[in-house]
C-alpha cells in the first residue's frame, strides 16, 4: 500500500497525524494561556506585548515568571537570564529529537526547533519512531496556535474559564503526559526504570534548585545511569551465554 502513495500525499498524511496528535496539547494549553493573557493584562502589559511574548518566546513557565519579574520591576537582563535558565532543558530535548529525526534539511530543522516544548517533545517522541518535519509541523500548528490564540483571548476577555473548570483543566497536560508514557512503561522495563529514577530525582532536586535545573539534572543523571547499567547487564548476560 505505502509504496503506491506519492511523497506529497504521504507527507500530507503525516502532517494530519501531527495535527491530530496536537489536539490534547491544544486542550491543555487553553486554560494556561487564558490565564497568561489575563495576568499579563493585570500586570499592565499592552495587548501587543502580551501576544508578542507568546508569539516570540512560546514557553509557558518562563512567560509567567517574566510577568512576575516585570511586576516587581526587575531589570531586563535579569529577566532574560532567568528565562535562559528555565528553558535550557529544551537543549536536551532538541538533542534527543536530532537523534530520531529523519529530516536532513537544516532550515526545516531550525524551523521545527522553534516549536519544541515539554509537550510537543513528549508527544513526538512517544508517537513516532522516526520524527518527520511534517509531523512536527502539524503538531506545532496546533500547540503554538492554541498558545497564541488563547493568550490573546485571555487578555481581551479579561477572564479565564469558570473557576471549577479552570482548576480541573489544569490537570490536562499531566494527564496527557501520563497517557503518553504508560503504554511504554507497561512494555519496556528500561523505560520504567528511567521514568521512576528520574521522577524520584526530580522530586528531591526540586526541594533545592529551581525546577528548570531539577528537570535537566534528573533527566541527565537517570539517562546516563540507566544506559550504563543496561550496558553492564547486557555484557553480563552475553558472557553468561558464552
Amino acid at each position: 500500500m505505502l509504496s503506491y502513495q506519492t511523497p506529497v500525499k504521504k507527507s500530507a498524511r503525516i502532517f494530519t497525524d501531527g495535527v491530530k496528535a496536537g489536539i490534547p496539547i491544544a486542550i491543555g494549553y487553553m486554560p494556561i494561556a487564558l490565564t497568561f493573557g489575563l495576568i499579563a493584562r493585570t500586570t499592565g502589559l499592552t495587548f501587543m506585548d502580551a501576544v508578542g511574548m507568546s508569539v516570540f518566546v512560546y514557553a509557558g513557565a518562563s512567560q509567567f515568571m517574566a510577568l512576575q519579574m516585570l511586576a516587581a520591576e526587575t531589570g531586563a537582563i535579569e529577566i532574560i537570564i532567568a528565562t535562559f535558565i528555565v528553558n535550557i532543558r529544551h537543549f536536551l530535548m532538541s538533542a534527543s529529537i536530532n537523534e530520531r529525526t529523519v529530516e536532513r534539511s537544516r532550515w526545516k530543522k531550525a524551523a521545527m526547533a522553534f516549536g519544541i516544548t515539554d509537550e510537543t517533545f513528549s508527544v513526538a517522541s512517544l508517537n513516532r519512531d522516526k520524527i518527520e518535519a511534517a509531523f512536527m509541523g502539524g503538531l506545532i500548528l496546533m500547540s503554538y496556535g492554541s498558545w497564541v490564540v488563547f493568550s490573546g483571548l485571555g487578555y481581551v476577555i479579561g477572564a479565564s474559564l469558570p473557576e471549577v473548570l479552570q482548576k480541573s483543566m489544569s490537570i490536562a497536560l499531566y494527564a496527557m503526559f501520563i497517557g503518553l508514557v504508560v503504554p511504554s512503561l507497561k512494555k519496556e522495563r528500561k523505560a520504567l526504570a528511567l521514568f521512576i529514577l528520574s521522577a524520584i530525582l526530580c522530586s528531591v532536586f526540586s526541594l533545592f534548585i529551581p525546577f528548570g535545573w531539577a528537570i535537566v539534572a534528573a533527566t541527565l543523571i537517570s539517562s546516563v545511569t540507566i544506559e550504563w547499567a543496561y550496558g553492564l547487564l547486557m555484557k553480563k548476560e552475553g558472557e553468561a551465554h558464552v
Binding site: L92, M93, S122, F177, S203, S222, S223, Y230
Partner: peptide
Amino acid sequence: FLQGVLKNVPFAVLGALIFPAIFTI
C-alpha cells in the same frame, strides 16, 4: 553510548515533568 543516552531522554523527561509537579499544580 551517547545515542543510547539521548534515546533514554523522553522517558526520563516524562518522569521529571510529571513528578513532583502533578502534586503541586
